[in-house]
Amino acid sequence: MTGAVTITIANRGGASFLVDPKKPLLASLEAQGVSLPYGCKYGGCITCAAKLLHGEIDQQAAVALNNKQLRDGYVLLCVARPKSDCTLDVGVDSHDKLYRNPFAEPLKQDELKADIATQPEETR
């Protein structure tokens, strides 16, 4: 495989896999026998969310993540393509910061999804 990158899954014993960077990680990893959660397969839900610990990912189609989730390192494996070797935590064990009760912890304006987020006053 030309230009293959190595994906390491930290919370599954550090297992590593060579994948094609042009393909979404969910498809690549499932093809190599990794059992992962998923739902919509187009970046619109967060069932397949994983946490990126090291490396770089292209996930332009991941419209379901808000800026807070992005800052916390979440990637949607169904549309994420690796731009380098990456280390990930996968599955619901990686979802400690993914879910939030909005009445207990409301989002700040700059933490919303990209299409509606605004910068805080002081940095405008």
Partner: peptide, 18 residues
Amino acid sequence: GPNTFMPGFDLEEVGHLK
């Protein structure tokens, strides 16, 4: 829209007419 409700409920999105 599915892209809004499927990832969960953000109260702030109500005000943004989502």
